[in-house]
Amino acid sequence: MTIEQKQLQNKKSEQEQNNETIMQASHIKKYFPIKGGIFKHTIGHVKAVDDVSLSIKKGETLGLVGESGSGKSTLGRVLLRLLEPTEGEVIFEGKDISHLNNRKLRAYRKHMQIVFQDPFASLNSKMSVGELIEEPLLVQTSVSKPERKQMSVELLEKVGLRANDRAKYPHEFSGGQRQRISIARALALNPKFIICDEPVSALDVSIQAQVLNLMADLQEEYHLTYLFIAHDLSVVKHISDRVAVMYLGRIAELAPKEQLYQNPLHPYTKALLSSVPSTNVREKREKIKLSGDLPSPANPPSGCVFRTRCPMAHDRCISEIPALSEMEKGHFVACHLYE
């Protein structure tokens, strides 16, 4: 079977299951121990992800934004089960994969892929482009060598490269082209779900636009589901259907993108959106200035984690953690102002 046929098959079965949840995360926590002292005892924990619940629908793009250190990548890695959650459940297509061992995970791995920010670091420089793209097929499937070759040629053409690029090495390509190679590699096993962890952040805008257009085309063609992690709010708005905003390991707000960008509710989302420099030279948006820095996730504030920078903070915010609650259909916010 060629990739085309396989993908067609995939597409059909996916259309039947439209609007279904592909990924469900409930109360995910990921704490990393901090070791210290002469005996390297655990003296504390970095609460990288702290009680996050979300679901991702088949075929959609869920954007995940937040400042550096807010836990976006860690959450992505837990969902892919590259990391085991400290607490909580990861359900992929109805199966709990939270604590499966590596051998059992293998069956799921081919459905879930990741594309990283740095196409320089994430591609093995000693392998040719052909080998890079065919490696997952070699490891995970029993596809024959000539078939693998044919598939890698098809994939290269799909991502806008040429068949004879197979013989070249990553260093012979520009940043944008390397990102295309990473995408071809991620597509090789015909996955359903792809986590894109800052896939265009290292690229120049004109190249970033090429890669974003490519990702949108591939999503349509193969009915892919994306979790798109980025810190650039304009990029996330462009590519996403729904957007989640993270702050210090928690979700502050989650909504369909129109609602999130037009009617942000959480004080952090409001500040974040107002801080994005706008190319509109006529109308200047009023900026909401946040004082101070992101606190350390090793020692997060009590109550609402945003309270040390929140212009609306009040007494209750010190003692009580606000729950993520639904304000209007699909629009969730974690803030005491709305309770």
Binding site: S206, A209, Q210, N213, H238, L273, V276, T279
Partner: peptide
């Protein structure tokens, strides 16, 4: 034209 913006919505970006 390559630049996604918060103000306007385009289906495709005009990549160079």
């Amino acid at each position: 034209e390559s630049l996604p913006s918060l103000e306007k919505e385009v289906k495709r970006l005009g990549a160079i």
